[in-house]
Write a protein that binds this DNA or RNA. Structure first.
Lengths: 352, 352
DNA sequence: TTTATTTGCGACAACGTTGTAGGAACTATC
DNA sequence: GATAGTTCCTACAACGTTGTCGCAAATAAA
């Protein structure tokens, strides 16, 4: 308690203080602020004016505690440095802002232990709902079931948990796996390699199944040596790709299920003096904004990331707001698009 | 109240229920959980065991309300689809996870009105501190002062508010403005254009001053027609750049203060059949991961985004945890690095 | 034995809201 | 002029914690 000097205190207005200023009970003030029919118009106006003058804001913690809802959702994703999750967050945030919700963000860094730890933090009223895209490593789902047992609405997007009964927003990964493979076949590839990561990820499987089924459809026997299962270790991945492409029986097409493996392929082709698309055609799943400016421009399958974020968020808010009811949508599949660029271009005449 | 059937309720454990199960008062249980010296070891163990068995988690809302701190910070940024803010968030989150804080994210979409609205939401206990990078449009700072008056710790990074007395983490924009300009000069450019956005942004000014001072140092008279002030409207920007480059007195070097203007430049050069770096050299501020794979590879000034996030967050937590004291750091300037690539390469012999 | 001191626990009042119950002071009904 | 119905406000008990205070019982000191 300072005795001398002016106390410049950060004055946080509360309902009680506001009530005292107005000579009203604080329940009257509370109701007036929430436009209750129990309060006369004169009083309401008086309260509103004073609240504005004193810059009163309700305390969200107290309000949330009392109402048992936090007006907050959590977004749990592997990474944020990524052309896919960026727009997804954008989509989520756009709906959240409309609905006046707040967005907590948690990154798993592709680490299942972190994912588990994060879900623990979300179990007790901190959030009204959760949106998730699983980490590469995630193999068990007890931590996800725990969330459901607590009755917290949950929506998955892109990297979903098949065995959890919750709404899921995905893209047509299987179809795109087929489309990408057929695109390479149509442009003359005979030996197509498939580069993938995280075998327990739903999207990896679907994309690979598309690849395999496309080959089958065109009567091509899949070659195990052309299927590369990469990891989080970039150096190791590069070595694997180097082995694949340095080989005399190297592929003439590469279908990368994730962007970073395509970029590695570009780098290694430069090293090996392989020309894209002459010696090797490359296509991959990617939301990179500068794919068109790469050398050569990169053919991609692009996911509607922003829309996925929006749709998934919309489903979540729907679920949050009529708690316990059935979700509006059980499964939503959005379409990705294949954008053919120079990395898969047909070369009619070879340069001398 | 259902009479028949099994009620599968989402059972949320509270302190009171836990206490009842243990035949202890809830204040005893509360203290036991927080390892108070007032509680015997036997009781503590009993409580801890039961809490684990029943999967008790403290209610963060109640706890925050009582303790008057939310263990949450807000990150207010213009965009998330961006190679700069992505790593920044990553850096922030890494520290937040260490310190067991939660991170709320808010996007202004370069809109000052949204920025103002967001700051209003953060005024009453929702967060213990705020990290901000201003929107392009932000011209007044009363909304920022309001935060400070409420006593909420605030740290700026990259796009700072010069007139607000709060810690600021930036990069050496002025120096880099000089370095980039000199790099172009050294590589033979005579007429260097400067492409910028958002004139009221601190970083824009500093970068431009670097550009101007570098010209002055080399006795070159700045040409107003070579300074392009772009906006948020991409189509309009493209037109401006087209005018600049379509002109007979076009520049032979472009220094873009933001990445997107460099990308536009690439696109327009393609349109006009201008060769980079032969006809025009290009350099820009950018954290693009694929700059090396562009056609041609793009020379950049790259900011240490992740480190900025970490440093700014560390300063904020420092401030949050010893509230009211002086900040540890008033101003921190990290160094960006210039990476020269082919877009600014010297061409000794022109192709026929 | 009497008087301090420690140990271990419980009661209780916050934190800032919201919603229910209650109750004056009016106005309308018969 | 008693009864019923509005209107407008206040009191109070939650929501789930945390921290202060008080108080028995056990231990130590005199």
């Amino acid at each position: 308690m300072p005795i001398f000097g002016i106390v410049h205190q950060s004055y946080i207005m509360t309902l009680k203080q506001l009530a005292k200023e107005l000579n009203l009970s604080f329940s009257t003030v509370s109701k007036a602020l929430r436009d209750s029919h129990e309060i006369s118009i004169e009083t309401k106006n008086r309260v509103l004016a004073k609240a504005k003058a004193l810059n009163y804001q309700v305390n969200p913690l107290a309000s949330s505690l009392r109402k048992q809802k936090s007006k907050t959702i959590a977004v749990v994703i592997p990474e944020v440095v990524n052309d896919f999750f960026g727009p997804v967050i954008n989509g989520i945030e756009s709906i959240a802002q409309e609905k006046e919700y707040h967005v907590l963000i948690y990154l798993t860094h592709e680490d299942m232990q972190k994912e588990v730890a994060i879900t623990k933090l979300l179990q007790n009223g901190r959030v009204d709902g959760i949106m998730m895209s699983l980490s590469e490593q995630t193999s068990t789902t007890t931590h996800l079931k725990a969330l459901q047992e607590k009755g917290i609405p949950l929506v998955f997007f892109d990297r979903i948990a098949e065995d959890i009964n919750a709404p899921k927003v995905t893209t047509d990964d299987y179809n795109c796996g087929i489309k990408a493979t057929e695109h390479l076949l149509e442009n003359g590839c005979k030996r197509i390699a498939f580069l993938t990561i995280a075998p327990n990820l739903s999207i990896s499987n679907k994309r690979m199944n598309g690849y395999l089924d496309a080959l089958k459809k065109h009567n091509i026997e899949p070659d195990e040596r052309l299927i590369l299962s990469c990891t989080g270790d970039d150096a190791k991945n590069n070595e694997l790709i180097l082995q694949l492409l340095g080989n005399s029986k190297r592929p003439d097409g590469v279908f990368a299920s994730v962007e970073k493996l395509a970029i590695s392929t570009y780098a290694i082709c430069a090293e090996l003096n392989l020309n894209i698309p002459e010696d090797l055609k490359v296509i991959c799943f990617s939301n990179m904004q500068t794919a068109a400016f790469l050398n050569p421009s990169l053919s991609t399958i692009t996911q509607p990331a922003y829309e996925m974020g929006r749709e998934a968020a919309a489903i979540l808010f729907d679920l949050v707001e009529k708690k316990g009811k059935q979700p509006r949508v059980e499964k939503m599949v959005l379409n990705s698009i294949l954008v053919a660029r120079n990395s898969t271009k047909v070369i009619l005449f070879r340069k001398p």
